[in-house]
């Protein structure tokens, strides 16, 4: 018997009979309704007043907390494995955009709760980006990025050019959050509304986790 056949038969034999649970669908429905409320409260508590305004605005524009709305965008989003944001490349150099600059309306840290992350091309020279998204220990990556030292707007930058990267974080509701690092020049990592130092540490943190995934 091959290893694969042995494994198939062994797994099939090992599983116990499921418990009877006629209320499974109802319980899932109730959990879905609770999750939405809980998630909103967690976001409010985490990112503060600026994000609170954004959440309330989003709630108002989506028509409130009626989970049965057919046009609910949360419902329409597929289970997210985040994709890289598009970037233009000319003559071997990737061009930056607004996504690579601080956004005064964004929080100053990567929001918690990311479920996937991708290392992507950022402005600068190109490099080979990994094919796979990170889906394990994403919260650890978030924590590591958020632990990098905050800095002000860079004042001294060298005139060299090197690789730039982005890390795109994906969330259950389909939203994304992108940080942008320069491994040259000002050597900064743009996170939300500000800058952090040691961008190479963020990239290394991603690659280390991807290597053990």
């Amino acid at each position: 018997m091959s290893d694969e056949q042995w494994l198939r038969e062994g797994l099939a034999d090992a599983v116990p009979p499921p418990p009877t649970n006629p209320d499974r669908a109802r319980a899932a429905e109730r959990l879905a309704r609770r999750r939405r409320r809980t998630t909103s409260l967690a976001v409010l508590g985490t990112v503060g007043a600026v994000a609170a305004v954004a959440v309330l605005t989003a709630t108002l524009t989506s028509g409130g907390d009626d989970p049965d709305r057919p046009d609910d965008q949360t419902a329409a989003d597929p289970p997210p494995v985040v994709e890289c944001p598009p970037i233009k490349i000319h003559d071997g150099t990737a061009q930056g955009s607004a996504i690579d600059q601080p956004d005064p309306d964004a929080p100053g840290a990567v929001p918690e709760g990311a479920t996937s992350a991708r290392l992507c091309q950022g402005p600068g020279t190109t490099f080979e980006v990994p094919d796979d998204a990170l889906v394990t220990d994403v919260d650890g990556l978030v924590a590591e990025v958020n632990a990098l030292p905050e800095t002000g707007e860079p004042e001294v930058c060298t005139m060299d050019l090197g690789p730039g990267f982005r890390i795109a974080f994906g969330y259950d509701d389909g939203s994304t959050f992108v940080v942008s690092g320069q491994l040259y020049g000002c050597r900064t990592l743009v996170v939300g509304n500000g800058y952090r130092s040691e961008p190479e540490a963020a990239q290394a943190a991603f690659l280390a986790r991807l290597g053990t995934q």
């Binding site: 429905e29 879905a32 999750r35 329409a76």
Partner: peptide, 18 residues
């Protein structure tokens, strides 16, 4: 296992129609 199934169903529930 039951928690995991129900969480997955809860996350998917809204997408049934689509």
């Amino acid at each position: 296992a039951e928690d995991l199934v129900q969480t997955a169903l809860a996350k998917s529930w809204r997408a049934w129609a689509r």
